[in-house]
Each structure stands twice: as structure tokens, then as C-alpha cells.
Amino acid sequence: MNKLIIYCCVWLILASTTTLAQMSGAEQIDSSNYKAKMYDTGFRVKMSPYTAIGASASIAYGFAKFGSHSLNDLDILARKEFALEHPHSRLRLDDYLQFAPGASVFVLSGLGIKGKSSTVDQSGIYLLSNIILNITVQSLKRSTKLPRPDGTSNSFPSGHTAEAFASAELLNQEYGRASTVYPVLGYATALSTAYLRMYNNKHWLSDVVTGAGIGFFSTRLSYWLYPKIKKVFSSRRTSTSMIMPSYSYDSIGARMVRSF
């Protein structure tokens, strides 16, 4: 049990580093000038070395499991503690929690609370992030074919956790400089999703750790790629575009409305 607690603490530190490192170095902004300063930053997103190391370590942890008996043993021990020690029925809350931080971005925007990007750009970044993480996650699932703890297939990595952390980082990027409450709640929701995936016996510890890193990097990469893609689709100044994501089980789609 002590070994489990130690490793779980390491995991929580790795997963939380991405937000805590960024918030610790964030510029203090006067609320009266918040709107102007936020829009001046555009799509520029800085990543501290600590943030990059924390997210990279999360992904590396999962891959290290394939050649490590101790990490495999830790997966088994974590499953026993979280899923088997006290028999329980499945809580399907994780199916919805994974989208909660991302949905919060659009709720806040709809309420008129300005984020770093416009609602249209938030939609585009969110869609692009989901495309990146789904391609990555599904490719790894099909190539590794790791069994889930419950005996079903395609365990590695956790798509629910990747989605949750991608959404949490979107909320952090858009509203983290307005208040630290937003990223704290977003990442708390993401961590809860990761825990529930293990609690429901659907994923190993290594699955959710890797999913967290993939989700984080998917959103960060989207902030870098999106303005380049937007430039291609916005060659005419007189046109406007709206990109809206859509979801179904294990798939993602998009709808674009363009007016001239």
C-alpha cells in the first residue's frame, strides 16, 4: 500500500505540474486591463521547461511500462486498490466529466466572459485538439492492443483521460489568467476522470498517466497549429467561418459554416 501511495503521488505531481508550473510563472494582470492584454497575446502560448518535462514524463511513464516488471506490478496493485478491493457498481460519470472543462469554456464565452480567443477560435482550437488526440490515442490503441483490466481490448492509452486533460488545458489557456479557480477546477475534473477510469476497472494506472500527457500536448499543439490553419481558410477578409465540433462514440466530426 505504501508503494502505491508513493507512485500515485508521483503521478499526481506529473499530472499537476503542467498547470502549477504555468500558474506559478504567470504574469499578474490588473483586472481593468485584462481584456486588452489578453487579446494582445493572440495565440502565443509559452511552455516552461517544467511544464514540458512534466507532460513528457507522463507519456514516457506509460511506454516505460512495456519493459518494466515493477510498473506492471504497480498497475496490478493499483487495480486491486481502486477497482477490486471494495466491490462496487460502475459509475458512468467519467463519460461526461471528460467534456466538462471544455464545455465550461463555451459556457463562459456564452455568458460574455471574454477568454484569450474568440468563441469561433475556441471552437477551432478545441476541434483541432480533439482531432490530434483521437488520432494519437486510437493509433496507439490499435498498435499496442493492450487488454483492459476488465478483459476487453484496446486499453492503452486512456481516451477519456486524454480528452479530460485536453479540455482542462483549453480552460486553463482561455481563462487561467483571469482566475486560477478555472484551471484548478478544470484539472481537478480531469484528475477525477482519470481516477474513475481506474475505479470502473476500464484502465490501468499507466493508461491514464499517458492519456493525461497526450491530452495536454494535443491542446498546446493546437494553439500553435490553429493560426496557421486559420490563415489558409481565411484568405479573404470579407469571409467569416464557424467551426463546430461534434462527437459520437469513439469518433469525432466537424461542421464548418462559411459566409461571404
Rank of each mutant, 00 (worst) to 15 (best):
Q138R: 11
K35P: 01
R148C: 10
R220Y: 03
M242T: 11
V105K: 02
T51P: 03
V181M: 07
F233C: 05
W11K: 06
S241C: 05
Y226S: 04
I135P: 07
T152Q: 12
W204N: 05
S109Q: 15
F106Q: 15
Y223R: 05
D95H: 07
L93N: 02
A26V: 06
K65L: 11
I135F: 11
T240I: 01
K202H: 12
S104E: 09
A36L: 04
V10M: 08
I13L: 09
S246W: 15
V137A: 02
T144M: 14
V107Y: 11
F99G: 03
G42D: 15
V232E: 05
G110K: 15
F156H: 02
S235Y: 02
T193G: 05
L14V: 01
S31N: 08
Y247R: 02
N134I: 09
P183E: 05
S24F: 06
S58K: 03
S32E: 10
D94W: 00
L140F: 09
S222T: 08
V105E: 03
P87E: 14
Y61I: 08
L97H: 05
R236Q: 04
P227T: 03
T161S: 00
G124E: 10
N72S: 10
M38T: 01
G151Y: 07
L170C: 02
I214A: 07
P183L: 02
T51L: 15
R255A: 07
S259L: 06
N134E: 07
S167E: 01
V105H: 01
R258F: 03
V257Q: 08
S104F: 09
L128S: 06
Y182C: 07
A78S: 11
L84V: 06
S24C: 12
P149Y: 00
F260T: 06
G112P: 14
A55M: 07
A57W: 01
T51W: 15
D75P: 14
K228M: 01
R220G: 02
L111M: 15
D30I: 00
W224K: 08
W11Y: 13
T210K: 01
Y199N: 06
L97T: 07
K65I: 13
N172H: 12
D75F: 14
V105T: 13
H203M: 09
M1N: 12
N200A: 13
K116G: 14
A78H: 12
N130R: 06
R237F: 00
S167A: 09
Q22F: 13
V184E: 06
Y226L: 01
Y7C: 05
S70R: 15
A15T: 06
G211Q: 07
T144I: 14
A78Y: 13
A190I: 04
S118G: 11
E163R: 00
N2E: 07
F233G: 01
Y39W: 10
S68H: 14
E169N: 12
N134H: 13
G62V: 04
A194S: 14
I29N: 00
I229E: 01
K230E: 04
N2A: 11
H86K: 11
C8E: 14
T161Q: 00
